[in-house]
Design a protein around this nucleic acid. Structure first.
Lengths: 248, 248
DNA sequence: GGCATTTATTGAACATGCTCATGTTTGAAC
DNA sequence: GTTCAAACATGAGCATGTTCAATAAATGCC
């Protein structure tokens, strides 16, 4: 590092000055994050070596593995910051007086917008996230996920309170169900070559509507003046999954 | 190999005898699959080296990478065989006269049972499957997935034909929605320490019921003699995601 | 059988994620 | 200022996934 200590020579000023050691650590972490972010985005996850990251951050190779348990963890080190912000904003925009679908779409839009910002990086995160369990950054990641499920539950609860929906299960569990939809929809969308936020949100909305409306199992009782078979199609039956990008 | 050619010395018997070269290839592939299967199951994916697999299959290291594009691909080489069988059986048991939920649960049960058979291996497959796109085995894998979605669509179509449901979207798309639920439910279940098929199917059923029943958005119109708030809970609000297993 | 051609196999060599013994820096006690 | 222990940083070294030029085997032709 060749530390040029341009500090004042006074005592470590009370509380807010955490000492040089702490400052160095913070600064190094920042450099490592920045370097990883830039390289992952530009060259992709697999084509970026940990040695490159270390060099770009101007630290030793070993140092990288002090701040991240492994290469994957580096990815989440970057993503977690952003995701927590998203979670907060999504939480803030919940409007107990708004229709459920609107609330859901607002929540999910924050997430989609976040992932849309850095598509390449997001694909990596979403690829690696599926079963991410080890590594220091796994915990905050899981917590953010659980917070999202709770938030969805809250949105459902709000709709119940307003008597606009009445699901056959707890709000929490309905939240989980909506989360399932979101997860797979998000993966489908993010895998596409040219991301269109609109397309993603439309597709998601379509799926959410299926859940909200249900499959209308009372139709049998009510099947009087209704076209019996493949009823009303809002949209043509688009092809659903798709061919995708190379891994390395 | 030291090929002991216990063959008849006659000419390659017409159609079904594909020549020694072809037979050797098939035999090697079989040995590689078998070795990989055994080692992955016993030692785990990360702790099994490709050298070990090559040695156990009694082939050179390089040979392994002729039959699989990479280590991950090896996993799918194993899984695809099984999954295609599952798909077929699931397709066969579709009963157009049965209730939708019953059909869905039958379809999914075949899958759950398959994954339950080799939990450790399945966790690996499901971990790696999330964004699997490269490698020779990716294609058949994707196709099996699409076949499942179509099958779900068929089940929905059958219910529509019998007038027992009437969804607000195409059967195909409803199939996709159900698939979303299945994917995330399966991941939740398979991540658990002691797999209980019953628990997995119950949880899945609960989620499917939410979708089938819908959130009853007409409640506002009908909200006369109904408890206004957190209505009827069939089951206690279980904790939904969970702590998990180490990656290596 | 003998030769030529096509195809399959192989393991040494390379690239890279990660570890750990060693060296360096920091902050405080005196 | 000196000393010391604890915390931190480092990169040589190792393990392992993957490639590829060299080799061997199989096949077709005479």
């Amino acid at each position: 590092m060749s530390a040029k200590r341009g500090t004042d020579h006074t005592t470590p000023t009370a509380a807010p000055a955490p000492g040089r050691r702490e400052r160095n650590k913070i600064e190094k972490l920042r450099r490592i994050k920045e370097a990883a972010m830039e390289l992952f985005t530009r060259k992709g996850f697999d084509d970026t070596t940990t040695r490159e990251i270390a060099a770009a951050a101007d630290v030793g190779l070993g140092t990288v593995f002090i701040y991240a348990a492994n290469k994957r963890d580096l990815l989440f080190l970057i993503a977690n910051d952003g995701l927590e912000g998203v979670e907060e904003r999504a939480h803030a925009c919940l409007d107990p007086t708004a229709p459920l679908l609107e609330n859901l779409l607002n929540i999910f839009r924050h997430h989609y917008e976040f992932f849309c910002r850095q598509p390449a990086l997001s694909r990596l995160v979403l690829r690696e996230m599926a079963f991410y369990e080890a590594g220091a950054q796994a915990r905050p990641f899981q917590e953010t996920r659980e917070a999202l499920i709770r938030l969805l539950g809250k949105a459902v609860q709000a709709a119940i309170d307003r008597n606009t929906v009445s699901p056959g299960d707890t709000p929490q569990f309905v939240g989980w169900t909506l989360f399932c939809i979101y997860q797979v929809e998000l993966r489908r969308w993010i895998s596409q070559d040219d991301l269109c936020l609109r397309e993603g949100m439309d597709h998601l909305q379509r799926a959410l509507k299926v859940v909200i409306r249900g499959l209308d199992p009372t139709a049998e009782a009510l099947s009087v003046g209704r076209p019996p078979a493949a009823a009303t199609d809002k949209t043509p039956p688009r092809k659903v999954p798709r061919a995708v990008r190379s891994t390395r």
